[in-house]
Design a protein around this nucleic acid. Structure first.
Length: 598
RNA sequence: GCGCUUGUGGCUCAAUUGGAUAGAGCAUCUGAUUACGGAUCAGAAGGUUGGGGGUUCGAGUCCCUCCAAGCGCGCCA
C-alpha cells in the first residue's frame, strides 16, 4: 500500500462566503494599518504595533514599549508621539496613552454599526468558510461491546461531537469514526454466556442497556467454572479462526450493543450513526500486511519472543528502547497492531489530512509511539497530521476519579438521567405554565446541555469535578444561564409579534455603552470560532458564549427594546436577533440545544 | 528511577499564547423589582499565581531547581 495521490477535496466553498469577512479580524486589520503608519513615522522603520483586545479599552497597542527600549526614550513619550501621528478619527472615538506606555483604542459606535449590520445580514454570522478544506477523521466515543458506557466515554463523546460540529461548520470534510471495542479475549466468554442464556434473551438484555449485568455474569462464570473458562478459550480460537457459527453469535452481541449505544447517542443528541461504527475488528484482515510492511521497512524486531517496533525517542524505566508490541509471543495481535492498521488505513486509504484521536490523556504515550512509527514508515504525507486530542478525568466531589458508592464506575446514562431529572424538577418549579411535553423538552435540553457545558468549559487536558448542583445552577457559568438569556430574547420576539410588528433585521445603530460592549462581543464570534477550530480549546468558545450572554443581560437591563421608539426600537430588535442567533449557533457547535421558552 | 499532566482567592474555573492594578462564577455582604421572564442586574470584600532562583522594558505564562498530586512506563485496550 502506498500513500498519496488521487484525493480530491470535497469541502466545497459556499458561493455566498465569497467576500465574507470576519468582522473583528477586519477591524483589527484596519486599526493595525493606521497604527503601523504612525509607528513608522516615529521609528523611521516598520514596527509591529502589537495590537490586541484589551480589558482597559476595546483594543490596546503595546508596540511602544519594545520600541522605546530600542530608541532609548521613555515609553510613554514614544506612545504619545505615535498617538500624535495617528490618523484614526473615523474608526475610534477615543485614543489614550495609559500605564507604562500602552495605547488604548476605543472603537467608535459608528464603526461598529456597519460591522454588526453586516453580521446580522449574513446567514453564517460573518464566519468565513475555511479557505483550505481538508479531510478530517475524528475518532471518538469508542465504547466496548457488551460493556456499559461509563464516564470515561462521556468526555470522548462530547469533545468528539463538538469537534465534528465545528469542523463541519468550517467547511471541512469530516469523517466520524466510532472505534468500538468489538474484538479480543473477552469475546470467548461473552459468546459462551450468550449461548447459555439464549440468544434472544441476551440480545434483549443488552439492547435495553443491562450490559453490566451481562458482562459481570460472564466474568463470574469464567472465574468460577473451569469448564466454562475452557469453553471460552476455545471459543476465542474459533472466533479468530473465522468459524461461521461463532461469527454469527459475535455479530449478535455487536448488533445488540450498537442498538444500545445509538439509543444513548440519541439521548445525548450526538451525531453518531450506524455508518460511523468502525470497530477494531474491521482492521483484522489488515494486520498481517501491517506486519509485512513493517518487516519490509526493517522496523520490526524480535524481543522476548514478541514482534516489536522501537520508535525513536522512547525509553523504558531502564533507559532501554521502548517497544510497541505488534505481535505477542504466542502470535496474537494487540491494540498496537490495530492502531497501526487503523492509522495506515486512515492516511493511505481514506486520504485523511488530519486525524483526531479523542482519547483520554493516559494513552498519550501510546499514541505518540504509534504516530512516530507511522512517520518512520512513511504513512504521513508532507501536510498530514495526526493529533491526540487528550482529555483529563472526571472527578467526584472527593477529588478522586468519579466512582459510584460501591466503588464501581458510574454508568453514563445514570448521570444523564439524574441531570435531566433535576432539570425537570427545576423547570416545573420555575415555570409552572409549561405543559408536560414542553417540560420534557426543556428538561432534556437543560439537563444534557448542563453536562456538556460543564465538560467543555474547562481546559480539555485538566481533570474536572462533576457536580450536579453547580452545573445545573441557573445562575453563574452554566448552560441554563445561556439558555435563559436566549429564552428571554425570544420572549421579546413573542411580545413584539403579538403587538403586530416584525423584526426587520435592518440597520443597527449603537449608542448606549451596554450596546457598545455587546456589539464588540458579537463581532468577536467569527474569530473565536476560527481559533477554536484549530486549537480545539472548546472552553474558549464556552467562555466566549458566557461573556456574550452576560453582555446581553446587561444590555437587557439598561436598554429597553419594546418600549423604545422608531429606529432605536428596530435597531435593538436587530441586536436581539443577532445575539440570539450567535448564542444558538455557538451552543449548537458545542452540541447544546437552545430553547425559545423554558 | 524515568516520562507525561497538573498546582491560581473558601470552592469551581479563566487569563487574548510574554503585556497594565491576575479576571469570572459560586458562596459571603450591600443595594435595585409600577420597563421586554428576578432563572436578573449594579456594587463590595476576598490573591506574595506551590517554594526559591534566573532570562527582560515586562513572567501565572519561558529556563533551572525543589515540593505536592494524578497518570503512564512489554506482550490488556
Amino acid at each position: 500500500m502506498r500513500c498519496g495521490g488521487g484525493f480530491v477535496l470535497i469541502g466545497k466553498a459556499d458561493p455566498k462566503s465569497v467576500g465574507r469577512l470576519d468582522p473583528m479580524a477586519t477591524l483589527l486589520e484596519l486599526l493595525t494599518e493606521r497604527l503601523a503608519a504612525a509607528f513608522a513615522t516615529v521609528a523611521g522603520e516598520a514596527v509591529d504595533p502589537v495590537l490586541r483586545e484589551s480589558q482597559h479599552a476595546d483594543f490596546q497597542a503595546d508596540g511602544a514599549l519594545p520600541l522605546a527600549h530600542r530608541l532609548g526614550r521613555p515609553p510613554r513619550e514614544v506612545a504619545a508621539s505615535v498617538v500624535e501621528a495617528l490618523e484614526i478619527d473615523d474608526l475610534c472615538s477615543g485614543v489614550d496613552v495609559s500605564g507604562p506606555g500602552f495605547i488604548n483604542l476605543t472603537v467608535s459606535d459608528s464603526a461598529l454599526d456597519g460591522l454588526l449590520t453586516t453580521m446580522a445580514g449574513d446567514d453564517r454570522l460573518a464566519i468565513p468558510v475555511t479557505e483550505q478544506p481538508v479531510r478530517v477523521i475524528v475518532d471518538y466515543s469508542a465504547p466496548n461491546v457488551a460493556k456499559e458506557m461509563h464516564v470515561g466515554h462521556l468526555r470522548s463523546t462530547y469533545i468528539g461531537d463538538a469537534a465534528v460540529r465545528l469542523l463541519e461548520f468550517m467547511g471541512h470534510d469530516v469523517v466520524r469514526e466510532n472505534h468500538i471495542g468489538d474484538w479480543g479475549r473477552p469475546f470467548g466468554m461473552l459468546i459462551e454466556h450468550l449461548l447459555d442464556v439464549g440468544e434472544s434473551e441476551a440480545a434483549a438484555e443488552i439492547s435495553i442497556g443491562d450490559l453490566d449485568g451481562f458482562y459481570k455474569a460472564a466474568n463470574a462464570k469464567f472465574d468460577e467454572d473451569d469448564s466454562f473458562a475452557e469453553r471460552s478459550r476455545q471459543r476465542v480460537v474459533l472466533l479468530q479462526g473465522g468459524d461461521e457459527q461463532t461469527l454469527v453469535l459475535w455479530r449478535t452481541l455487536i448488533d445488540a450493543s450498537q442498538r444500545y449505544f445509538l439509543s444513548v447517542y440519541d439521548r445525548l443528541n450526538v451525531r453518531l450513526t450506524p455508518d460511523d461504527f468502525a470497530g477494531e475488528s474491521s482492521y483484522n484482515d489488515q494486520l498481517d500486511s501491517v506486519v509485512d510492511e513493517l518487516e519490509a521497512a526493517g522496523l520490526l524486531r524480535e524481543s522476548d519472543g514478541a514482534m516489536c517496533v522501537f520508535p525513536e525517542g522512547f525509553t523504558n524505566r531502564d533507559g532501554d528502547p521502548l517497544p510497541l508490541i505488534v505481535r505477542n509471543r504466542v502470535g496474537g495481535y494487540g491494540y498496537a497492531a490495530t492502531d497501526l492498521a487503523t492509522i495506515r488505513d486512515r492516511f493511505c486509504k481514506l486520504g485523511a489530512d488530519r486525524i483526531l484521536y479523542v482519547v483520554g490523556l493516559p494513552q498519550q504515550q501510546h499514541f505518540e509511539m504509534v504516530f512516530q512509527v507511522a512517520k518512520e514508515i512513511g504513512w504521513y504525507t508532507a501536510d498530514s497530521e495526526a493529533t491526540h486530542v487528550g482529555f483529563g478525568s472526571i472527578l467526584g466531589d472527593d477529588g478522586k476519579m468519579l466512582r459510584s458508592r460501591a466503588g464501581k464506575s458510574v454508568k453514563l446514562i445514570d448521570l444523564i438521567d439524574e441531570a435531566v431529572d433535576r432539570a425537570r424538577r427545576a423547570a416545573t418549579e420555575k415555570n409552572p405554565d409549561l405543559d408536560e411535553a414542553e417540560a420534557g423538552l426543556v428538561a432534556t435540553a437543560v439537563g444534557v446541555g448542563a453536562t456538556k457545558f460543564a465538560d467543555l468549559s474547562t481546559e480539555r487536558t485538566k481533570d474536572y469535578v462533576f457536580d450536579f448542583d453547580r452545573m445545573l445552577a441557573f445562575d453563574g457559568h452554566t448552560a441554563p444561564y445561556l439558555q435563559y438569556a436566549n429564552a428571554r430574547i425570544h420572549s421579546i420576539f413573542r411580545k413584539n409579534e403579538a403587538g403586530g410588528s416584525v423584526v426587520d433585521d435592518g440597520a443597527i445603530v449603537i449608542s448606549e455603552p451596554a450596546e457598545h460592549k455587546l456589539a464588540i462581543r458579537l463581532t468577536e464570534f467569527a474569530t473565536v470560532v476560527d481559533e477554536v477550530s484549530q486549537s480545539l480549546d472548546f472552553h474558549r468558545l464556552a467562555h466566549y458564549l458566557f461573556d456574550l450572554a452576560s453582555a446581553f443581560t446587561t444590555f437587557y437591563e439598561h436598554c429597553p427594546v419594546l418600549k423604545a421608539d422608531g429606529d432605536v426600537r428596530a435597531s435593538r430588535l436587530s441586536i436581539c436577533r443577532v445575539t440570539s442567533r450567535t448564542l444558538s449557533q455557538g451552543l449548537d457547535l458545542l452540541g447544546i440545544d437552545v430553547l425559545e421558552r423554558m
